[in-house]
Amino acid sequence: TIEDAIKKLLKLAQKGQPYTFGDFTVTSEEEAKKLAKWLKKQL
């Protein structure tokens, strides 16, 4: 689910690992949080 993807994304971001989700490449926890907010709006 999208919720699971968001959780995984935040965990990876906390470890400092870049994470690619579709067109987004997230390289920081701050970016992960922005992406998570955006994804929730898409639901």
Rank of each mutant, 00 (worst) to 15 (best):
V26F: 08
K11Q: 12
P18N: 08
F21Y: 07
A13D: 02
K41C: 10
F24G: 01
K8I: 12
K33D: 07
L10V: 06
K15V: 11
L39S: 00
A32N: 00
L39A: 01
E29R: 07
L10T: 02
T27A: 05
F24N: 01
D23I: 15
L9S: 01
L10E: 03
A5V: 15
V26G: 01
L10C: 02
E31F: 13
K34P: 00
F24K: 00
G22R: 01
L12G: 03
A32P: 01
T27D: 04
A36K: 04
L12C: 15
D23W: 15
A32Y: 07
K33R: 12
E29A: 08
L35G: 00
T20I: 12
I6E: 00
K7T: 05
E29K: 08
L9A: 01
T20E: 12
T1A: 08
K7D: 08
L43M: 11
L12S: 09
Y19V: 14
E31G: 05
D23S: 10
K34F: 06
K34N: 11
F24C: 14
L12D: 07
I2Q: 02
E31L: 14
L10P: 00
Y19Q: 11
F21V: 07
F24W: 12
A36H: 06
I6P: 00
L10K: 02
T20Y: 06
V26N: 04
L12H: 05
F24R: 00
A32F: 08
G22Y: 13
F21S: 03
L35K: 00
L43Y: 07
P18D: 13
A36F: 15
T27R: 05
Q42W: 10
K15E: 10
T20S: 06
K37C: 08
E29L: 14
Q42S: 09
T20N: 06
K11A: 12
K11M: 13
L9V: 03
Q42P: 01
A32T: 09
G16E: 06
T25D: 05
Q17F: 15
Q42A: 09
Q42K: 06
L35E: 00
I6K: 00
V26M: 03
T1M: 07
T1I: 06
V26H: 01
A36V: 14
E3N: 04
L10S: 02
L43F: 05
K41V: 05
A13Y: 06
L39C: 15
T20R: 03
E31C: 15
G22E: 11
A5I: 15
K33T: 07
Y19R: 06
P18T: 05
K37S: 09
T1P: 08
D4T: 06
K7Q: 07
Q42N: 04
S28N: 09
A13I: 13
I6N: 00
G22H: 08
P18F: 12
I6R: 00
I2F: 09
I2S: 01
F21R: 00
W38N: 01
W38F: 06
K33V: 13
K33L: 13
E30S: 11
E29Q: 08
T1Y: 10
K34E: 09
Q42C: 15
K34V: 04
Q14I: 13
K8A: 12
T27L: 13
E30K: 10
K37G: 06
L39T: 00
E30C: 08
F21N: 04
K7I: 09
G16Y: 14
L35A: 01
L12E: 06
G16M: 13
T1V: 09
L12V: 08
Q42V: 12
T27H: 03
T25W: 07
K7M: 06
L10Y: 04
E30D: 10
L39W: 04
K40V: 12
A13S: 05
K7G: 03
T1N: 07
G16F: 15
L10A: 03
Y19T: 10
E3Q: 13
K37I: 12
A36Q: 04
K15S: 12
S28R: 01
W38E: 03
W38R: 02
D23Q: 08
K41R: 04
L10W: 11
L43D: 02
E29F: 14
S28I: 13
K7N: 09
K41F: 06
K8M: 13
K15Y: 07
K40M: 14
Y19H: 10
G22P: 05
W38D: 01
A36I: 15
S28G: 05
K15I: 10
G16S: 04
L43K: 03
K8F: 10
I2P: 01
F21D: 09
K7L: 11
K34R: 08
E30T: 05
F24I: 10
F21Q: 02
G22N: 13
L10R: 02
F21G: 02
Q17H: 11
A36G: 02
I6V: 03
K37N: 10
L43R: 02
A32Q: 02
K33N: 11
A13V: 13
L35Q: 00
D23V: 14
Q17G: 14
E3C: 15
L39G: 00
A13L: 12
K34G: 03
G16T: 06
L35N: 00
G22K: 02
V26A: 03
L43N: 03
Q17K: 07
D4W: 12
S28V: 07
L12Y: 09
I6C: 04
E29G: 08
K41Q: 13
A5W: 15
T27E: 05
D4F: 02
L39I: 05
T25Y: 12
K33P: 00
I2E: 01
K15C: 05
F21T: 04
D23P: 10
L43Q: 06
I6T: 00
Q14P: 04
D4L: 10
K8H: 11
K33H: 10
L10N: 01
K37F: 07
L9M: 09
E3A: 12
E31S: 11
L9F: 10
E29Y: 14
V26D: 01
K11W: 13
A13H: 03
A36S: 05
Q14S: 11
A13F: 13
A5M: 15
E3S: 05
K7P: 00
E29T: 09
K41I: 06
T27Y: 11
L35R: 00
Q42Y: 11
K37A: 11
Q14K: 09
